[in-house]
Design a binder for these strands. Structure first.
Length: 894
RNA sequence: GCGCGCUUAGCUCAGUGGUAGAGCACAUCCUUCACACGGAUGGGGUCGCAGGUUCAAUCCCUGCAGCGCGCACCA
């Protein structure tokens, strides 16, 4: 026996093989290959991020797809890279700056700050890449991209320029979602609605012309009262409608503001009257536009009050001001009531504070190729899995709002727009800027800076997603080029990502694909599950419920982690993650390793497979099952049911191969066995195991590579990962009838062994080895299988004797190969045995009754499919036979 | 409010219009020369509730309940 540790130690093995694959160039994609192309682009993780379980699931699936595609003879490109993640990265560096130097980014200035971010990126940028390598990801690392690479940046700018020239990008003064912490605008998708406990304040404004009469108004934001420019009531309001056209007194700062009618006001809600603050609410803003109302902005960008006319509020935090305004209203006798109230408040994803609707100058995009992109998914040109996400996609596409693409950040792709210096003020404040303004020469929009004249560049950068949406092709070529890589690998085959970024990324990539490459970017989108903890909560850093995948890999190996997580990953629903599943993955790798270790007791020379004809039925059966597994997996891969694939691989190895076959052939490998028997067993082992390792490889790449080498299943310098899957079945030469006969007989023996073990356990002889069994009325086929049966059942001896007269009370069982008796000298308890058999009879009688009832039902016999009826009849016959045998046994005990 | 998903063994989840499954956990036995990260045996489920379709429903349909998610301008 070779010097193999008893338990599989994955750590060094995994490291070794990853290095070997890389050194041999196994991950490299050849754009000049004749083979059919298969491409995936990685959803680029944040450059400064660290690996979490979501990444593990997502990238394991991609790796499985990529490795399987290689085995199927495809030319595979799995293109990796990272995303600059504007807000997230900038926030990290700003925090570090604040904590270590007590400075803000403005203290450093733009250039110096950006230098710091690049430093930070260089320092932390490859952490997640290293972690992906640890996981075994077979990406073509030579093609790694970053969304702020020089070439990529050019693509982003060119895209801006093109869309601007096309009239799809414009600048305008709009109500946007403003993050008072990051001090930037956000897109609608970056706002997270959270149910929040608020207070609904009801206050009253006095009518100017009817002193003593009041309009009651409910609001959750009394601090914006200073920005009120009107009161809106529903035109059909029973009490207030008559006052439309009148004015009320705004308490502070004092002003007279009009009462207007607008059916946007909900009669049912609050008092049916609404204060209008166009600067701080989207609905109010629209009502304001409709009624041509003034816009009074009472907040600074950081969310503090901006009310120079009202010094007592000026500069206060918005939430402090809210309490103060409430108190003041109360003091003035204008506060009517306060009630607890639950509403949805929009939060900034990054800042984790309520966003502030704010009017500001921003760049917007009217989405291109909307109709084509909507149709692509609806028609099935792009397949979504699970399919239901197509509906979510369609709904979003039908309700598209222009995309606010500018961000008031420094880290990112700066907007490629320059303003003429002598017209700077006018241009900066212009209500809108679009194609014609560039034509007039006041602004310059281009990839390269203007060469003549005095210009100043727009300070904003673009939304990170404005670079991500170009990912599938911008990673493969330069601007406007058609590189060999692009030609070979675009469009990509599969995209694997989370459903949470269907709008952020997937939908936008489809539109960009059509717009810039005139083709869809991918054919299949597989949406992964969201991983939750056992309580069903999302994994998050703040909850501390997110296990570190690196720890898990240290403990259980990358293969264990991959397999464990894949086996519990259902399609379509969330996963409740538990470490025990990873432990099972580790155990599985160990089981596999030990099965091979067992084989290696007989050396590790690849044993040739003897002719199938004449092999023991167990060998034929296990090979047939392997063939079936290979066929089935092909179909399941086609349906992207990754969890099921893992489960099938698990069941075959553990149940069919180890528990049954390996136990059954142990006799053939003993010293006493014949050379033929040994050769057949070893040949079968190697034939099955070598193929099985290939099938398992995408899920557990390292251990399968290791074992294939140790067992000499691959030749010198060859890798399992790049070895083609065999195309013919192991048993291709054998007829279906022969296979079926062998399968039936092997199954009968396994079943009989189960019965005998069961009998032993009943009498507490579970572990005893000197139990004898005597078969009466044994099937003819039994004679050749007696040794195996004895081995499986843990019996010292099995005899057949049709004349055997069992002493009364001898434990007995009905098996598929005959009645079995377990003689027990001196230990016989007639009563116990009768009870046991009676119980079995009872169970069987219930089955028979059920079956007879069914067959006695004319409607069933007439209307059920004939094969179902035949099946049922066969079943009844079997029950009856067994029942009769049991009956005889019981009689014998009388 | 609209839409979507989930509800099966103590736990995590498969599954099928025709005899309820796995892993873990539990109980009993086994340190048998591949594996205790193991082997054997066993207990445990009116398949969320109520109707309907069907010869037959855990599965299909309707309604309800609970949980979760997404979308939405209710101040």
């Amino acid at each position: 026996m070779s010097e193999l540790a008893k338990a599989y130690e994955p750590q060094d093995v995994e490291k070794k093989w990853y290095a070997a694959w890389q050194a041999a160039g196994c991950f490299k994609a050849d754009e000049n290959s004749d083979k059919e192309a298969y491409a995936i682009v990685i959803p680029p993780p944040n450059v400064t991020g660290i690996l979490h379980l979501g990444h593990v699931l997502n990238n394991s699936i991609q790796d499985i797809l990529a490795r399987r595609a290689r085995q199927k003879g495809k030319e595979v490109l799995w293109l990796p890279g990272t995303d600059h993640a504007g807000i997230a990265t900038q926030a990290k560096v700003e925090r570090e700056l604040r904590e270590t130097e007590g400075k803000t980014r403005r203290d450093l200035g733009r250039d110096e700050f950006l230098k710091r971010v690049w430093d930070f990126k260089d320092k932390h940028g490859d952490i997640i890449i290293k972690q992906l390598k640890r996981l075994g990801c077979s990406c073509d690392w030579d093609r790694e991209r970053f969304t702020m690479d020089e070439a990529y940046t050019k693509w982003v700018s060119q895209t801006f320029v093109d869309l601007f020239n096309e009239g799809l990008i414009y600048r305008g003064k709009r109500m946007v979602n403003w993050c008072p912490v990051s001090l930037t605008a956000l897109s609608d998708e970056e706002v997270i609605m959270k149910p929040s406990k608020s207070k609904l304040f009801t206050m009253k404004y006095e009518l100017v012309d009817s002193p003593g009469e009041f309009i009651h108004i409910s609001t959750t934001r009394p601090e914006t009262l200073m920005g009120d420019v009107a009161i809106a009531v529903h035109p059909k309001h029973p009490k207030y409608a008559k006052w439309i056209g009148n004015k009320v007194k705004r308490p502070f700062p004092e002003a007279e503001i009009p009462i207007i009618g607008d059916d946007a006001v909900d009669l049912e809600f609050g008092t049916g009257a609404l204060k209008i603050t166009p600067a701080h609410d989207k609905v109010d803003f629209e009502i304001g536009l409709k009624h041509d109302l003034e816009i009074i902005d009472v907040l600074h960008p950081d969310g503090n009050m901006n009310t120079p006319d009202l010094p007592e509020f000026d500069g206060l935090d918005r939430f402090v001001a809210r309490r103060k305004a409430t108190a003041k209203l109360e003091e003035m006798g204008l506060l009517v009531g306060v009630e607890e109230y639950e509403n949805n408040v929009g939060y900034s994803e990054r800042g984790n504070v309520p966003i502030e609707p704010r009017i500001s100058m921003q760049w917007f995009l009217r989405y291109p190729e909307v109709a084509k992109s909507t149709e692509a998914v609806a028609s099935g040109d792009i397949t979504f899995r699970p399919a239901r996400w197509a509906k979510t996609y369609a709904h979003w596409m039908e309700n598209l709002q222009d995309w606010c693409i500018s961000r008031q950040l420094w880290w990112g792709h700066q907007i490629p727009v320059w303003y003429k210096k002598d017209k700077l003020d006018a241009l900066k404040n212009a209500e809108s800027l679009e194609t014609k303004d560039a034509a007039a020469g006041d602004i310059y929009v281009g990839v390269e800076p203007p060469t003549d004249g005095d210009w100043e560049r727009d300070e904003d950068v673009m939304d990170t997603w404005f670079s991500s949406w170009l990912w599938p092709f911008a990673t493969m070529s330069g601007v406007g080029e058609s590189s060999a890589t692009l030609k070979k690998f675009y469009p990509t085959a599969d995209l694997v990502t989370g459903p949470d970024i269907i709008f952020f990324w997937v939908a936008r990539m489809i539109m960009a694909g059509y717009r810039f490459e005139d083709q869809l970017p991918f054919k299949n989108v597989y949406f992964t599950s969201i991983i939750r903890d056992l309580k069903g909560r999302k994994m998050s850093k703040s909850l501390g419920n997110s296990p570190d995948p690196i720890d898990l890999m240290d403990k259980f190996g990358a293969d264990g982690l991959r397999f464990g997580i894949m086996r519990i990953a259902p399609m379509g629903t969330d996963i409740r993650f538990d470490e025990s599943s990873v432990e099972e993955g580790r155990n599985f790798a160990n089981k596999l390793y030990n099965a091979c270790r067992f084989r290696q007791m007989d050396g590790n020379e690849f044993a040739p497979l003897p002719a199938a004809k004449g092999l023991p039925v167990y060998h034929i059966q296990v090979m047939a099952k392997l063939d079936q597994l290979a066929t089935d997996l092909e179909g399941i891969y086609g349906e992207y049911r990754f969890g099921e694939i893992a489960q099938r691989l698990y069941e075959f190895l553990w149940n069919d191969f180890c528990d049954k076959w390996l136990e059954a052939v142990k006799a053939d490998l003993r010293e006493s066995a014949t050379a033929e028997a040994r050769a057949a067993a070893l040949g079968t082992f190697d034939a099955v195991m070598s193929r099985y390792l290939q099938l398992l490889h995408p899920y557990m790449p390292h251990v399968t590579e290791e074992l294939s080498e140790r067992m000499n299943y691959v030749s010198e310098g060859e890798f399992v990962m790049s070895k083609a899957l065999p195309e013919t079945a192991l048993l291709a030469e054998l007829s279906a009838a022969d296979i079926e006969a062998a399968d039936k007989q092997a199954t009968a023996v396994y079943e009989a062994a189960g019965r005998l073990r069961n009998l032993k356990a009943e009498y507490n002889l579970g572990s005893s080895k000197d139990v004898r069994f005597i078969f009466k009325g044994a099937a003819a086929s039994l004679s050749g299988e007696i040794n195996v049966l004895a081995l499986l059942a843990g019996a010292s001896e099995i005899l057949t004797d049709d004349t055997y007269e069992a002493p009364k009370g001898t434990p007995a069982a009905v098996t598929p190969v005959g009645e079995a008796y377990m003689p027990m000298e001196g230990l016989i308890d007639v009563e116990a045995e009768r009870t046991r058999i009676s119980k079995e009879i009872e169970k069987m009688q219930i089955e028979v009754k059920k079956s007879e009832g069914k067959l006695g039902n004319a409607s069933f016999v007439d209307r059920a499919p004939p094969e179902v009826v035949v099946q049922e009849k066969q079943r009844l016959e079997d029950w009856k036979t067994k029942l009769a045998q049991l009956g005889e046994m019981l009689d014998a005990l009388k």
